[in-house]
Write a protein that binds this DNA or RNA. Sequence first.
RNA 1: GCCGGAGUGGCGGAAUCGGCAGACGCGCAAGACUUAAAAUCUUGUGACCGCAAGGUUGUGUGGGUUCGAGUCCCACCUUCGGCACCA
Length: 927
Amino acid sequence: MQKYLPNTFEEQWIEDWKKKGLFQSAFEQKDVTSDNKEYLLFAFAYPSGSGLHVGHVEAKTALDILARYYRMQGKKVFFPVGWDAFGLPAENFAIKSGVHPAETTKKAINTFRKQINRLGISYDWESEIATSHPEYYKWTQWLFLQLYKKGLAYKKKAPVNWCLSCQTVLANEQVVNGLCERCDNEVVQKEMDQWVFKITEYAEELIEGLNQVDWPVATKHQQLNWIGKKFGIDIHYEIPELKDEVTCFTTRPDTNFGATFIVLAPEHRLVEKILQHVDDKKKQEIEKYVETAKNKKDIERTEEGRKKTGVFTGFYIDHKLTGKQLPIYISDFVLAHVGTGAVVGVPGHDLRDFEFAQTFNIEVVQVVKSENISMWRSYLMGADDISNKDLESIGVIIAEQKENNVRLLEIPKKSIEEYKKLIRKKLSSGYWNELVGEEIWFCFKDTKENISEYVYSEGNKKEIGKLCAEYNNDPLEKTQNLYLYLASNDWYINLMIQEENGAMINSTFLNGQDIHQATKSMMDYLEEKGWGKRKVHYKLRDWLISRQRYWGAPIPIVYDPDGKPHVVKEEYLPWLLPTDVDFLPTGESPLRLSKEFKERVETLYGKGWTPEYDTMDTFVDSSWYFFRYTSPRDEKHFANPEGVKTWMPPNLYMIGPEHIVLHLLYSRFLTKFLRDEGYTKLDEPFPKMRHQGIIMGPDGKRMSKSRGNIINPDTVIAEYGADTLRLYEMFMGPIEADKPWNESNIQGPYRFLSRIWHLFHSLPKDQTAKISAKLASSLNKTIQKVTQDIVGLKYNTAIAAMMSLLNDMEKYNEELDLASAKKFLKLLAPFAPFITEEIWRKVLGEKESIHVQSWPQVDDIHVVQKTFTIPVQVDGKVRSTIQITSKEERVVVEQALSNERIKTYLSGKKYKTIYIPGKILNFVLQS
RNA sequence: GCCGGAGUGGCGGAAUCGGCAGACGCGCAAGACUUAAAAUCUUGUGACCGCAAGGUUGUGUGGGUUCGAGUCCCACCUUCGGCACCA
């Protein structure tokens, strides 16, 4: 008998399927209805030079199984493929090597095609699209024009993230920890004229839409987080000396009686006005601060951590609530683009405000009293000049405030260790490298003279008075807050209190109210007085789409000799990307170097006209491709209305977790826009979405070149064949989970396929055997299980069920008939398309492909059980099982009581009977 | 710090509604075949006690609800992902 050698036959079936066109031109199918169509969408792939990796294999196979299954179910399946072909890597490669991005991309796509085919993915290649193709980006440009017409694409001078290495503007989303997402180099702020899409117009709908979609909850949460809706109030404070006012947004107006200062962002509009009203010395001081703040690189900001800087303007606002004058400062911890770019400082109850107040010696007022210490959030801060040798001993003061008394908390020994750990963690995470002192003191001290009796120390007690004497110079002593002190001999760290609960104090009409109630009362009060207005703020900002890059779709805009923008006429689309460009990292848009581009504009529009040299963010390309798939060759529409009506939306979208925020948000935005323009009726493009997990390296870490733990699918195929690779990846675990690659686990699926190979080769040709009831039942249960699991994307358990069935079939192989064996093969076909086809055609001699056969049906007769096994418990512990033919309680109990083992447990005892029909019987002994 | 996910044998992972924990696979051990190895096949395999029958224990920790908890509730621990001077 021949050994199972997948590489001797797998590739020839790819040819066969292609020749017969089994999976092609699906978008042209007739009689497609919303009930019988299955549009399966896999995330648009960027064709990187390094080719396919095992992570791609997982998600593609998962969808392929579904596609093959639905075809066998007689559904109209549409399973398209395409390329997110524009983008930075190809261009960066061009700068290094001089090879044109078009060339690189073409080559990469060819590699991908070959690899995907080798895996047996049943894509509809007739629908293939690529964003770099003029027939595609023509419509990307058309989309820009539609947005422009509606005022949703506009130009804006704005500080943008500029990557020094890539020499381009980055979206906020592409800046990670102050570094460029792609190249990990420094990102600086730069003021530039940029094209922007007004996604914020749809902010509210982007939130509400999440209620309609079947997505993983975590994904929804992340989107909500990103949009960042906040309810609060804009409070207007008058600046009498400037005859102007400053508006501050806050979500905590309840604490407004505790306000002691105002801070403006360096970019705030009032800064300019202030400069006109101060003397030269002050002017210089402010200008200097604003200048350094504006030039500050993001990376410097993070390095500085929470250290607060700022400058006093010399002006005050009228705080009408308290009648006080509050000083106005400028500081870069206030961000211009957040809220109103100005905040009201409440140092008693906000961490940053507190730190700022510390730096500038501003009064701290407590207006909330927290009842429970566990609600206090803490934060460490302390002296800058501390060194390790100072840390001879260290302590924490923990106290609880009750009414007007404060008492020391009893702290169990275990907690001491926990506090130590916490302190060490805090210290190592940015303040000091090491903690030398080991002794921990727990004591308490309030603001005035109240001092409790003991210091709780590890091992010994100390009197608190002695300890407090050491802190007599406490600069915070005058404040009314209760602080926690982390103390050593000659320095202190105090811990800030920011409560989530509590009652108002020192706040006139709010006193006694709980903070949530007080928030409402204060908002009502401020609105009534006309000092403020309720406002919703979003974190989401408009989508900056300009890129000073070559390898992207040119923005279809031209400028007249006065520099005024005009749209490129639709008849000129596609607005071709010029080819006469050198790839140099100049920091300018490479398109400026094209002679042809300039000439084209002058020829079409007249002398002195110039093109827009920037190209579009590639996220624009990939935010509408799922529409294009439905009519990939249509020359008159971005997507043919019939195609959209027939196929949209995708029944399932499979996409990596890395696209959760950007791609999905942008796609949803554009879909909503297209709906408003009448091109679709959909509110949401992806009603059902699932993520594939990440496949980790054998070391349990994320695969990366630098770690050298990348698994190449080609080598796995060369050794085991594509079927084994597919099966292994599906068997690893749930699709959505992150899973480590394990070389030796591949053996399982490989042996499974080998055993099938041998089973079918040893089937007697002239089959007269009749299947036994036991095997038939096993087969039918498996059909049921596999069918359910495929739809539920639980491929790992589907495969486990088929393995079990194979075990049975081998055990009782003389009872196996040909018809049943064929059913089993069909079940496996979507998972392992090659071996099943080889056996189906070559061994069983069938004429038509197994992949066009119909899915096996469950034969109910064999599934309905005649006898059941019921576990019998005594006192919740399983002591025996009984076989029953009736689920009736009387019968079951009677039979259980006649069971010898059960008898021994129950003899002579009183008991209660609990029976859950068909599940379990429990005898509970009564004492 | 905030938001979210996850903790089950030596390993990957199973377990509808709260109802026999550990399916299926890997690995390991013993055996068969072989001169031998590989491959293949058979049996066993959570831990502890026991010759065995069997018993005890067991799903990150500590409590709780229940006849019964991996599953539900409360408080934590660990870990992964995202966001973060976001007012």
